[in-house]
Write a protein that binds this DNA or RNA. Structure first.
Length: 254
DNA sequence: ATGGCTATGTAGCATAGA
């Protein structure tokens, strides 16, 4: 079984790249973030004509999440239960016995921003909800753009980013608290190349200079972690014409 | 060099991303 996540930064712009990537990699589920499309404008027909199923929850201009699957997704839910969030950042579905949760964690803007407070509150609500979800769904995968670089080795310039949004201690503690639920960071279950990133700023030729952050993650509950065989970041789409600033992260399970 | 790109909404720039 293959699971993946990709912040596409506008599905309207990136749809051809997404369809190409799906055809090449044939995941059982691909979680998308930042679709930036209202549901009425979501390209359901194009995705279904390519042979895929899709569940989605979007809004105008910002945010928006989706799960593309080979087989019809079951028990689709939008959002975090008990949290009336106007921003479309979470969608979940059951796929072949696995509960797949697609998350787009708030960016936070800067540690001084109100958006940073929202981010930390949002992460606390995610944590509380996942606790109950894990009880109901032992085989649980949480994939998405977490907007957190968990450790200094996930940052091209740890000293320069120290204490900044994406790297601040409260954010890293929130991430560690998610791992404390018994979830494993799939990427770190293996030896990986040093300086592995999932996001590169569009500016200053950061991709060509190999300067980025690892902020997109796949977290797996223990039953799924026991089936984990690989986890990689596919940086090839980042080198394409008009790329997303994020790369897909992929894991394979027995 | 607190800029630098890219996308959206909407019609010359503002907001947001990270």
């Amino acid at each position: 079984m293959k699971l993946a996540t990709w912040n596409v930064n506008s599905l309207k712009v990136r749809l051809p790249q997404v369809l190409d990537w799906l055809a090449t990699h044939r995941p059982d589920a691909l979680c998308l973030q930042e679709t930036k499309l209202e549901d009425v404008n979501f390209p359901v027909a194009a995705i279904e004509q390519a042979g895929w199923c899709v569940a989605f929850a979007g809004q105008k201009t910002y945010n928006g999440v989706a799960i593309v699957t080979q087989r019809p997704p079951e028990a689709v839910r939008v959002g975090i239960a008990g949290f009336d969030d106007a921003q479309r950042r979470v969608i979940s579905a059951s796929v072949d016995g696995v509960r797949v949760i697609c998350v787009y964690v708030p960016n936070g803007e800067s540690v001084e921003s109100d958006k940073y407070r929202y981010k930390l509150d949002w992460l606390a609500r995610l944590h509380g909800w996942l606790q109950t979800e894990l009880q109901q769904h032992p085989s649980l995968a949480v994939l998405g753009d977490y907007n957190i670089a968990p450790e200094d080795r996930d940052v091209y310039d740890p000293a320069g980013w120290a204490g900044k949004v994406l790297c601040s201690a409260p954010e890293r503690e929130a991430f560690a608290t998610l791992l404390g639920l018994g979830l494993a960071d799939a990427f770190r279950q293996f030896e990986q190349p040093e300086r592995s990133w999932s996001w590169w700023d569009y500016r200053m030729n950061m991709f060509k200079r190999k300067l980025g952050l690892r902020i997109d993650h796949i977290l797996l509950s223990q039953p799924l972690a026991a089936r984990l065989r690989s986890c990689t970041i596919d940086s090839t789409p980042r080198a394409a014409e008009r790329p997303s600033d994020h790369a897909p992260v992929v894991c394979e399970l027995d």
